[in-house]
Design a protein around this nucleic acid. Sequence first.
DNA 1: AGCAATTAGGTTGTGCGCAATCTAAAATAA
DNA 2: TTATTTTAGATTGCGCACAACCTAATTGCT
Lengths: 159, 159
Amino acid sequence: MSDVKTQKVSNNEHLPESAASLLLENQVCFPLYSASNAVIRAYRPYLEKLDLTYLQYLVLMVLWEQRQLNVKSLGERLNLNSGTLTPLLKRLETKRLVERSRSKSDERARIIKITEEGLALQSRAQGIPEKLICKVGLESAELKKLADLCRHILSTIDG
Amino acid sequence: MSDVKTQKVSNNEHLPESAASLLLENQVCFPLYSASNAVIRAYRPYLEKLDLTYLQYLVLMVLWEQRQLNVKSLGERLNLNSGTLTPLLKRLETKRLVERSRSKSDERARIIKITEEGLALQSRAQGIPEKLICKVGLESAELKKLADLCRHILSTIDG
DNA sequence: AGCAATTAGGTTGTGCGCAATCTAAAATAA
DNA sequence: TTATTTTAGATTGCGCACAACCTAATTGCT
């Protein structure tokens, strides 16, 4: 495969000055994207023992805190819209982890309520966060810094 | 909707001590995941002018640097596997931005080569990185810190 | 040479993410 | 009250991500 691998240019002086910003190494958001993918992959072996995906786990985490809420509130909490949440919640309903009813005071609103079975998963998930922190391999202060930077991005972009 | 919104528990003292780690606010990886989604959303308006998705843009960025390479090298560069890359590269081929040939020295290897049309997109993409940095709203030093933390995660998890 | 093991990449199936669009209910205006 | 606008959520369609699996080519072993 040497005929394929040896094509990389050794420097970029032939490119216009501004093209340096289009080099992958200089991208800020690419590591963010890759790290997010990698973390979700790292969760998988633990979550599949609970027959959950990462997003399903996030939804349950909200519901462990707050027994029930509507789709809009859930979407605001997770920064996701109904196109993502509706099919996901149907899958959680099929697994009998949540119930999807309608609000009596507002027939548009869908009330998502965790079931006993859904609540029971919480204890089985106890060890997961710590295991992930180990896998990620950052100190507590660095983890906090990372989370703060990400939250800053979120408030700037969305808010 | 007050019947839905007022269900949040005011504190978590009724939960076992260890359950605090299962609160969404205390998750480290959730902001990472949300920020990554938000950044990709933020790219969209600029990239759709070039008829590109974020991942297609990343692939082209590699190819602007290195005219051609095989799928394996591309996957190592982007931390993605053939299940993601193969269909993506076919779409780029349909748009005539890349060509997919076979290596003569190894018939298994697929050589991905950027076309003139693909190269021409580079100049149209010049302004994008700067616009995104503005949208993200972090200082240069903070961006570097974020990228370094993400790269640290990647090297720990994958490597 | 002959055969097992490895490697490259393609295929399949599931589950996101999300923009755009739709429907129906609720809020607001006239 | 009726008409307009807004809102909640569902639907559609596309493009990822990825594990699991498959095929074919190459390498390694004896």
